[in-house]
Amino acid sequence: MSWIFEKPLVTLSDTKKIESDKVLWEAEDLGGITEDNNRVPVPIVWLVALTVLTAFAITFPLWGQRPTAAIYAEYVQAMDKPEIKAIQSDVAAIERIVAMSQGSQYNAQLERHPVTMDDLRILKPQIEELTKKGVDLKDYTVVGAQVVLANFEGNFRADGSRERQQPWWDKGYTIDIFYLSYFFIFVVLIIKRLPPSTWQPRHGGEHK
């Protein structure tokens, strides 16, 4: 069971293990079934790599992830300005609020999560209440008509400071990178413990 690391891309097993594996592989009859030792074809490796990239790219939370309360904070503040209060039409009022908030760091998210004045009237007291408490609005999610703590937002140290705050685009992604990495390392280790793919077993006495 000893490991060797001289040629890790060829095999991680020592000669003794490889030879015993070869003997077993050729001698054993698994109900008349035999197996070859072909490598994972290069196009398949590329396809798997493409799948991993696609998985992250297509699930990137540009579409559909619920917004945080932080993106509406400026809107809520703007609602109390005399200029906005003076506007009679809700449509005109929200258009003016949006125009006033141009240049906000949340512009891209606000475009994907548009609201009406009626929506803002529901959100306003909740956001103001949270602001009074002094909490970070980026931790709070807008779920329908409610502004709630709806996500694991990281651990706090004993002194009350945050270990790491998840940015809006990374709610569940970092953990996935670790998860995938462990998987691929594990599978590569298993595969590389096999005899090198340059060796093919002989089935029925026929040399390959």
Binding site: V52, T59, Q65, Q166, K171, Y179
Partner: peptide, 26 residues
């Protein structure tokens, strides 16, 4: 209203069911 991290994680894994599918079909 499940946590967004759980949905994001699940969604990435959901696309990655293509990995066993590619392996099996090939």
């Amino acid at each position: 209203p499940l946590p967004e991290w759980l949905k994001s994680f699940a969604s990435v894994e959901g696309v990655l069911i293509l990995v066993p599918a590619i392996a099996f079909v090939s």
